[in-house]
Design a protein around this nucleic acid. Sequence first.
DNA 1: TGACCTGAC
Length: 694
Amino acid sequence: MPQGGGPLPPPKRPKLASATAPLGSAPRRAMLLAAPGPKRHTAPASSAGSSSGLDSQRRSLPIFQARGTLLGQLRSLDCAVLIGETGSGKTTQIPQYLYEGGIGRQGIVAVTQPRRVAAISLATRVSDEKKTELGKLVGYTVRFEDLTSEETKIKFLTDGMLLREAIGDPLMAKYSVVILDEAHERTIHTDVLFGVVKAAQKRRKELGKSPLKIIIMSATMDVDLFSQYFNGAPVLYLEGRQHPIQIFYAKQSQSDYLQAALVTVFQIHQEAPPPQDILVFLTGQEEIEAMTKTCRDIAKHLPDGCPQMVVMPLYASLPYSQQLRVFQTAPKGYRKVVLSTNIAETSITIAGIKYVVDTGMVKAKKYSPESGLEVLAVQRVSKAQAWQRAGRAGREDSGLCYRLYTEDEFEKFDKMTIPEIQRCNLAGVMLHLLALRIPNVLTFDFMSKPSPEALQAAVEQLALLGAVERKDDQLILTPLGRKMAAFPLEPKFSKTILMAPKFHCTEEILTIVSLLSVDSVLYNPPSRRDEVQAVRKKFISSEGDHITLLNIYRAFKNISGNREWCKENFVNSRNMMLVSDVRAQLRDICIKLSIPLESSRSDTGNIRRCLAHSLFMNTAELQADGTYATTDTHQLVAIHPSSVLFHCKPACVTYNELLHTNKCYMRDLCVVDADWLYDAAPEYFRRKLRAAKN
DNA sequence: TGACCTGAC
C-alpha cells in the first residue's frame, strides 16, 4: 500500500507580499495550505468576538503589511490579477482597503463568489469588521435574498447573480470595481463574467464614462492565462498562512482504488493517535454508501487498544441533517472518518482533518456536442484538483496526504481541470449573451474558447426553440427568445413555460419546471429501497415522472409542507422548500411578462401535450425489439432505473435529458402521443425524415 | 433491463 514518498520539496514562491512579478513567472504550487480564515463557513459560523478583537485580527493578517503597496498599485491599475493563498485575507480585506483608500467611492465595489453561503458569510464578516449593520455599508445579493440598500458600497454576490444583473445593465454602471474571486475554480458563470466585465470596461472607456476596475482573485494557478486575457494585467502575489502537508505516493500502481483506500484508512487508523480525523475522496453515492458499510463492519472487530471509529458518508444528495454530522467532533477515544465526493474539495470544509486519502478519481460530466450527449464518467483528477484535495488536510495544523497512485502517474495527470464552459451544453450561455446584446455571440471573447461545434450546437438548439433568428447576417433574439432569457432556467424549460398558456396549464407547468430545475426532491437511500418504494407508490402516475413529481408537490402543499411528512415520504425537505421559492420567482416573472396563469386541475393530458410541444426534440419511441431509439437521430437509449416508467414500455416518451453512464439513459420521462410531436414541429420532423432517407 | 460529481440564476 502507499508508502514512502516524503515531504514535498520546499515551495518556490515569491517571498514578498504584493511584489509585482513579471509575466511567466508563475509560482509553483508546491506547498499548500491554509490557516483558519474567515471564509467558506459551511458549519454554522460563530459570531466574531469583540470589535477590538476584530481590529487586531485584521491587523495581524499577512496582507496588512502589504496594505500601502497594494493600494498604490490597485489605484493606478485598470485590471489586476491577485494571487493569494488561503488565509491571506484577500477576500475580506481588499474590498475594505479600496473603500478606506477612497478607490472607486463613486460606485459600488462588487465581490463575486461561486457559492451562496460564501457570499453571505463574507458579507457578514466584513460588515462586522466595519462595525456596521449588515445590509448598510456592506451587503450581499444572492438568489431570493437581497440584503443591500442605498448606502451599500461593498456588495458580495454570487457570480450568477452579477451575470443576471448585467442583462438589465450591460455596462454595470453602478459598479466602480468588480472583484471576481475564486477565479481558479472556473465555474461557467465566472468564465462568462470574465468576458462580460472586460467588454463593459472597454465600452465604458469608449463612451467616456467612469472607469471600471477589474480585479481577478485566484489561488496560485492559471496566472498567465488570466493576465494575458486581461491585456497583460500585472500579477500581485500575497502570502498566506499555511501549514505544511506531507505527501505520500503509492509505491506501485493500484488496480483497485477502493481496496487501496480501505487498507490505507485502517493502516492510518491503527498507527495514528485519535482524534486526528481522516477524509477520503471517492466518486459517488453508491460507492460511498458501500464503503461506509464495509468500514463500519471492519471497525466492529478491531484489535484491543485500537481507537474506535465513526464513519460518515458525505455527498450532495444526502439530507442536510446527515450532512451536518460531519461537523460534529467525534466522541473521546473515537476517530472520525469522512467518506466524501468532491463536495469536500471546495463546498464543505471540515475542521480537524489531519489525513487526506486521495483515490485520484472523480465522477464528472463531459459534453459531446456532436451527439449532444452528456457523459458522466469516473475519471482521473487533474493535478490542480489533487493539490486542492491535499490542502484539505492542513487547515488547522500540518497534515498528511496519501495519494493512492504513484508519483509517475501523478505527473501524467492533466495540469488543470478542463473549465466547465468547455464541458457543457451552451444553449443557456448563448441565450444569456444574446440578451446582453453581445454583437456576435459566436466570436465572443471567452478566456478558454469552447469548440465551434459546441457553439454551433447551442445556437441550433436555440433556433429550434424559436429563440433566435438571423437578420443581416447577425444572430438576434426573437421576441420569444427575449422572454425566455428573463427566466433563470435552461432554455427548454423557459420555452415550456411560454407554451403553457396555449394548453391552459401554466400553474402546473410552473410546478413541474421548478421541480426539475433544482436538485431532486426524492431521497433514495440504497439501504432502504423497499421502504422507499412502498411509500412512493401513492404518488406514482402511469403517465410518467413529471406527473408523479406534480403529485408529490401537491401532496406536500396539502399538508402545508412540514418536515415530518418529508421524512416519512423520503422527500428532501430542503430541496422541496427551494422548489417553492423557485416557483414563486418564476410565477412573478410570468406576471411581469403578462403571461396568463391558469390551472388545468385534474386534466393531465393538457400538461403532457404542453411538454410534447416544447420537448419534441427530446423524444424516443419503442422499437419492435423492445428497445428505445430517439426520434431524431435514432440513438439507442434506455429508461433510467430511477424513472417510474422503468418497468413499463410506453410507445412514445419525451425526456428531459440523456445521460450516458453505463448505458445511454433517458431521465425524467413523460408518456406522450406520437401524433402530438408531429403537430408540435411538422417542419422539424419532415427534415429529420428526409435526412434519414438520404 | 438496475442508478444520479458539484455549484448557480
